[in-house]
Simulated scan of single mutants.
Amino acid sequence: MTATAHSGGRSRATPGRHSSDLLRQILVAVGAVVAVVGAFVGSGAAGGTPIAEAAGGALSADATLLAPAGGAFAIWSIIYLGLVAYAVWQLLPAQRTDARQRFIGYPVLLTLIMNAAWILSVQAGLLVLSAVIIVLLLIALCWAYGRIISSRARGRRSVIGTLLTDGTMGLYLGWVSIATAANLTSGLQFAGFTGFGWSAEAWGVAVVGVAGAVGVLVALWSRGSISPTLSLAWGLAWVAVSRLTGTLESTPVAVTAIAAAAVVVVVTVTARVAAVRAARSA
């Protein structure tokens, strides 16, 4: 269905404008509201139990060697603010038929709904289910961010649009990567996983190393996108803080986390510089 404008008895079609575009915009906005309400409940502000205390404290700073210190979770406020701003921005008429928003809208919506589902599962004390959901959330974020990267040549790109789309979703992806490692570790521990004979510290070092490797791959894949690295390095730094100052200390895990964060930052900057130079010489 196309929109039609009438002027002087003649009609002029507006190509590509469909009712499904408006539906997409509304659903993304509703998804953002659902995610923010879920976060409000999960923070304990509405009388519920804060995430760190839910499920018997399984996601607290000293629950596992992969859990970041409490200060790390302040980044959620920035991410949710960005998601709300993105949801409002993509509602503007100018974004209705934008090719890029058409391409990424529903993947972003999926991450918002799954975020709320994850919070509800933790609040319900369903730790194993929450681990499954956050893994699926991470997969959905990889899909959404992959589309964001591949669609950079599509539609209209402004500074504000890039910050709200690439920036917000990049922060979201980087942080959930760390949150997934912590939540999955708690879920496996709760389920009685013994680690195939490896010590908890060995597993901690290995998983932190994998998180760093994922950050390096994202940096290379996105040609030096800054936002995923910022949140991933933030999370790794707070894992180190927790292991050095909390009751569950581990110098090897802390050192690995610091080294992983440093490597991810260096690779990101190098990839970014290379991408800028390639663009200038093209």
Rank of each mutant, 00 (worst) to 15 (best):
215 G>R: 09
221 W>K: 06
123 Q>C: 04
241 V>H: 11
29 A>L: 10
9 G>F: 03
225 S>V: 06
26 I>C: 01
280 R>Q: 13
253 V>L: 06
113 I>F: 14
154 R>L: 15
20 S>F: 13
77 S>G: 15
242 S>E: 06
247 T>H: 02
139 I>S: 07
81 L>V: 11
8 G>H: 11
232 L>C: 04
205 V>Q: 05
39 A>R: 02
206 A>P: 02
187 G>N: 06
165 T>D: 10
72 A>R: 12
146 G>E: 05
198 W>L: 15
156 R>S: 14
245 T>R: 08
251 T>C: 03
18 H>E: 14
229 T>S: 12
49 T>R: 12
248 L>A: 11
203 W>A: 00
233 A>K: 07
175 W>E: 00
68 P>F: 11
42 G>P: 03
241 V>I: 15
149 I>N: 05
275 A>N: 09
95 Q>C: 14
237 A>G: 15
274 A>R: 15
156 R>G: 04
127 L>N: 08
94 A>G: 03
118 W>M: 11
199 S>V: 01
29 A>C: 11
29 A>E: 00
282 A>K: 09
135 V>Q: 12
176 V>S: 04
14 T>W: 15
201 E>T: 10
87 A>H: 04
83 L>E: 09
162 T>H: 12
181 A>F: 01
125 G>K: 05
276 V>D: 00
248 L>D: 00
